[in-house]
């Protein structure tokens, strides 16, 4: 079921703001990732502006929902979203990668308000959310835990070790979101072309299903699909849920979309200007 048009327009506007902040911050830092962050914008916005039970003024609230960005290299998207949601001033996003900044190159829960788990070594962020979900059950708390994984990241065995244990213990207060953009960092040649490189992983929904998870597939850039998928995931009983969100790496900037070269490339001043213009003029994503 589509969501109401007015809140949807608001979410779309947020998504444009997040994308602009990502590009501006990476440009200013002269370092960081671009493709993965642009891929996850709608997911982050849906989470922090619609789905999560959180209090930006009290980031350590014990009963808050947890959201773990396991694909930690994309954290600039999360910082931008957290800032817009009021966890810290938006200007602070521009200290990304600067010395002594709270905006680290990979998430650091000891530094940044709103970060529920440190991450950055792919796969290692998959298991702590299972621990959070198990702790909620043990402590009689009703918070929900979300773990956001990259599609390259799920090549790590640890993800599947987590998937097994989560279904073994029927952990239905845990939802995984796979950012399924079909591109990783260097990847594999597509159709024998060494310079076009993709993540060839296939049957992603089937894999999670085979591990005993309830799987929902959706367009990860369409709020009308994403938000109902998140809401459905929370209602599933007796097993964990996995949202396989079809996304586009570099989404929103024509010359970045789907290109592995933009995984961690810093836009030049001209590229930045062109990208910002596209985002401002563009048909709203989501």
């Amino acid at each position: 079921m589509p969501i109401d048009p007015a809140p949807k327009r608001d979410l779309q506007a947020r998504a444009v703001q997040v994308r602009k902040l990502i590009l501006q911050a990476v440009h200013k830092a002269g370092a960081g990732h671009v493709g993965g962050p642009l891929s996850m914008v709608e997911i982050a916005v849906a989470m922090y502006f619609k789905i999560l039970r959180i209090d930006p003024k009290n980031p350590q609230w014990p009963d808050r929902d947890r959201y773990v960005l396991s694909k930690g290299h994309s954290c600039i998207a999360l910082y931008a979203t957290l800032a817009l949601r009021g966890f810290f001033p938006v200007e602070e996003v521009f200290t990304y990668d600067a010395m002594n900044s709270r905006m680290q190159g990979h998430p650091d829960m000891t530094k940044t308000p709103g970060i529920d788990m440190s991450s950055g070594s792919l796969g290692t962020g998959a298991s702590p959310p299972l621990g959070m979900a198990l702790a909620a059950k043990r402590l009689g708390k009703d918070f929900h835990t979300w773990v956001h994984l990259g599609d390259g990241e799920i090549q790590e065995g640890q993800v599947w070790e987590m998937a097994f244990v989560a279904s073994q213990y029927q952990v239905d207060n845990l939802t995984a979101i796979v950012d399924y953009n079909k591109v990783q960092q260097f990847g594999f040649p597509k159709d024998g072309n060494l310079r076009r490189r993709v993540n060839p992983l296939v049957q992603v929904p089937e894999k999670w299903r085979a591990f005993g998870w309830h799987v929902i597939e959706c367009d990860g850039h369409d709020f009308d699909a994403l938000i109902p998928a998140c809401e459905e995931a929370k209602t599933i009983k007796g097993r964990p849920a996995c949202i396989v969100a079809h996304t586009i790496k570099g989404k929103g900037v024509s010359f970045m979309e789907g290109d592995y070269n933009w995984h961690a490339k810093v836009p030049s001043p001209e590229e930045l200007a062109k990208a910002l213009a596209e985002l401002e003029a563009g048909v709203p994503v989501g």
């Binding site: 960081g32 990979h106 070594s121």
Partner: peptide
């Protein structure tokens, strides 16, 4: 490490 931070 090119500003990647503590994990790297």
């Amino acid at each position: 490490t090119g500003k990647t931070g503590k994990t790297h």
